[in-house]
């Protein structure tokens, strides 16, 4: 994909995340559009591209966050690595991106909790507290995945050809 188009996609995702997505919350969880963009990109284009997108999206999120820099970059990078491990399997199936999105969300939340705890924030580590954060986040991200995945896959194939990166 054209780097300018990629930057535009990430920018729109992050701005929508800050401005619109808080109203789509479920309890304390919010669907995370930049994470879903990275899952989609990482699955279609491979681990390296996903990691690049994760760094860019993470830095953008950090700029808009009240938390210190790295609070979003590190979790998104970790999520991109997880997605990269599953890239190229079960091509054209929604099940693999869904499984990767769920795994990436769990990794994202856990790594962010670690980062926040290391930064001196209060983080509850009990099973119930972690489950209360992780489960709604996974459900919401799975719900929003088709909205992000299919348009991105279509636009990437249109821009870079019909074959996926790992198919070449």
């Amino acid at each position: 994909m054209n780097p300018y188009a990629a930057a535009l996609v990430l920018f729109v995702a992050v701005v929508a995340q800050v401005s619109v997505m808080p109203s789509a919350s479920l309890g304390s969880a919010v669907p995370h559009l930049p994470l879903l963009v990275i899952v989609s990109c990482g699955y279609v284009r491979g681990a390296r591209t996903g990691l690049l997108w994760a760094l860019a999206a993470g830095l953008l999120c950090d700029q808009l966050s009240a938390a210190p820099i790295g609070t979003y970059t590190l979790p998104l990078a970790a999520a991109a690595i997880v997605v990269g491990r599953g890239s190229g399997r079960l091509a054209d199936s929604i099940f693999m991106p869904a499984a990767l999105a769920a795994a990436a969300t769990v990794v994202f939340v856990l790594v962010q909790m670690v980062v926040l705890a290391l930064g001196g924030n209060v983080v509850a580590w009990s099973w119930t507290a972690v489950a209360r954060l992780v489960v709604p986040a996974v459900l919401l991200n799975l719900l929003w995945l088709p909205v992000v995945y299919f348009p991105l896959r279509w636009s990437m194939r249109r821009a870079d050809g019909p074959r996926l990166a790992w198919e070449r």
Binding site: Q17, A67, A137
Partner: peptide, 14 residues
């Protein structure tokens, strides 16, 4: 309503 936080674990407003 100007904006919130990019994630659910940090609680802030714009």
């Amino acid at each position: 309503v100007v904006g919130g936080e990019p994630g659910a674990l940090v609680h802030a407003l714009w």
